[in-house]
């Protein structure tokens, strides 16, 4: 922008009115800072402009000044002190605090209730299991008490004298019931295994699990004796006769 452009194109007047875009305004301000003559022209223009405005001033109504004063001096909006309002506000606050406290308690109770419900479910499940086991044991006890069932007593030899077990031979159900509550635990990595001697051949009746419960073993109607050996963990296909712990002839 040149000085001539600023004058001829009316940029000085537009600048005065605030109508110049930012690009032209920057260019003109830069020119004004360098050209004292142009600055004086603008100063004169501004002075005339102000005189013209003063000539055409219109006295505004007095209340505008008062309104302006109120708008500037007005403090930030504060709630006026009114007892009824404050009482209502206090009650509202109290209500809000109480409601919040009740809400927290309700939430806490809800959580506790959920835990209790879970516990209850667990207990019920346990109870069902115990009931089921009891029922099962009742049935087994009833069964072993039957006169049709033949009890056979097995006692450990010199290898394991503490080994004692009673086998209930139930021909009708095809099962042999044993209660493992009193037998000692087998050595690490070994298992007790029960065998039936059928025609001088040892036939497996199953691995004895010392878990303190009734256990069903395979019934061998042709077996002449019951035998218990110590076998590798999980049992063997063939009986380790050198590891015989107990033997009883079936009557």
């Amino acid at each position: 922008m040149t000085k001539e452009e600023a004058i001829e194109q009316g940029y000085l007047e537009a600048y005065l009115l605030g109508e110049l875009d930012s690009e032209k305004m920057e260019a003109l301000e830069s020119l004004l800072s360098r050209d004292l003559g142009l600055r004086n022209t603008l100063n004169t223009l501004e002075a005339d402009f102000e005189k013209m405005a003063m000539d055409n001033a219109i006295e505004p109504p007095a209340h505008i000044r008062e309104n302006l004063k109120k708008a500037i001096e007005q403090p930030k909006v504060r709630l006026p002190y009114r007892p009824d309002l404050w009482a209502a506000a206090s009650l509202a606050l109290l209500f809000a605090i109480t409601a919040f406290s009740l809400f927290l308690r309700w939430q806490s109770t809800q959580e506790e209730l959920e835990i209790l419900q879970q516990d209850n479910l667990f207990v019920r499940s346990e109870l069902e299991e115990i009931r089921s086991k009891n029922l099962e044991q009742e049935v087994i006890l009833e069964r072993v008490a039957s006169p049709e069932v033949v009890p056979v007593f097995l006692r450990g030899n010199q290898r394991l004298t503490s080994f004692k077990i009673v086998a209930y031979l139930d021909e009708a159900s095809g099962q042999v019931w044993i209660n493992t509550a009193d037998i000692p635990s087998p050595p690490e990595g070994r298992s007790y295994q029960m065998w039936g001697d059928v025609d001088d051949h040892m036939v497996s009746m199953g691995v004895v699990k010392p878990e303190g419960d009734w256990q069903a073993m395979t019934y061998l109607p042709e077996a002449s004796s019951l035998n218990v050996t110590l076998e590798p963990e999980g049992g063997s296909e063939e009986a380790s006769v050198d590891q015989l712990l107990a033997q009883t002839i079936i009557p």
Partner: peptide
Amino acid sequence: SGALYGVIIRMCKDSGLAEELLQESF
């Protein structure tokens, strides 16, 4: 205020509005 009010009222031609605008301007 007089010079500005003179401009505002000539622009909007409404004394009520001009009063509000003068206050807003200040």
